[in-house]
């Protein structure tokens, strides 16, 4: 299995398209950082809205590495599913298209094993992509902007997290995002089993993610109360939950606290459930599949 995994990873990382994702992420992060470096104050002002009327806002301090990292993650995590689908959707369909799948399947390798290894390789790619993102979004932002307390504007509340209370939240958020994106990888992987070229599953995955995200955000009560709690896209934003703190009776934020950990864990559980469902289905279908490519 380990040998097979190494082979899969080797194949993924020798494909030029794999690095499109890393390049795209680096480019967009640098663009955001550049923009905030030169015009960050306006951005913070925009975020803070009217409260600058009644509060003295130390803009330079708000615009620190942690804040910038949050802005970056908020802006790009919603689009990363495309990059994940690019590799996971190619996993089976790409080999079917290339014709290598039939040679692979004549090797003494079990279909279930191959599928697990291929999915796991997609997950490793996803995690590496996130680590790359963390490296650039977090470390590079800290390098450029320093650290301070993190100010996070939500829909109608502004959260503040103490500097020393921030880093673990990022680690938790990245871990959560890994699971969220692995769900997208599992979906693309499942669709990949049915296709004989990789464009289909990639486009289909993106379409599904987009449609479900719209449904998640539509705020139509009929959907909110029925389908929304079951859409995996509703739960993919759960990483943000790690940046929301509880407040004590005196309205003060309790450092180290999470506003609603059970909700995050529930989201995590639902995402893991989807992963198991998608991957199991993919394996079952692939085990029965006649390879005609």
């Amino acid at each position: 299995m380990w040998q097979l995994l190494k082979i899969e990873l080797f194949k993924i990382f020798r494909k030029p398209r794999t690095f499109i994702s890393f390049g795209a992420i680096a480019a967009i992060i640098l663009i955001i950082q550049l923009g905030l470096k030169f015009d960050g104050k306006s951005y913070v002002e925009l975020m803070m809205g009217d409260i600058s009327d009644s509060f003295e806002i130390p803009y330079a301090m708000v615009l620190n590495g942690y804040f910038v990292a949050f802005v970056i993650l908020n802006a790009i995590l919603i689009h990363v599913p495309l990059l994940v689908a690019l590799v996971a959707g190619d996993s089976i369909a790409g080999e079917a298209n290339m014709g290598t799948l039939r040679l692979v399947m004549t090797k003494p390798v079990s279909r279930t094993g191959l599928m697990l290894v291929k999915y796991f390789a997609s997950v490793i790619y996803t995690v590496l992509l996130l680590l790359w993102m963390a490296l650039l979004a977090l470390l590079l932002s800290i390098f450029f902007f320093g650290t301070n307390d993190t100010i996070i504007p939500r829909n109608d509340v502004i959260e503040q997290i103490q500097k020393a209370d921030t880093l673990w939240r990022y680690i938790a958020a990245f871990a959560f995002a890994s699971v969220a994106l692995s769900t997208v990888a599992a979906l693309a992987f499942l669709l990949s089993v049915f296709a004989e070229n990789s464009i289909g599953p990639i486009v289909a995955t993106m379409s599904i993610v987009i449609v479900l995200t719209i449904l998640s955000e539509l705020k139509i009560p009929m959907y909110d109360n029925t389908v929304k709690p079951y859409l995996f896209t509703s739960h993919m934003l759960g990483w943000k939950g790690f940046f929301y703190s509880r407040i004590g009776p005196d309205h003060m934020v309790i450092p180290g606290s999470i506003e609603n950990l059970p909700a995050i864990l529930r989201s995590l559980g639902i995402l893991l459930g989807y992963i198991v469902m998608f991957v199991t289905t993919a394996i079952l279908v692939f085990r029965k599949k006649d390879i005609l490519s």
Partner: peptide
Amino acid sequence: IRMLLTLIQ
């Protein structure tokens, strides 16, 4: 041949 090679069931 594909059945011999387990590509087709």
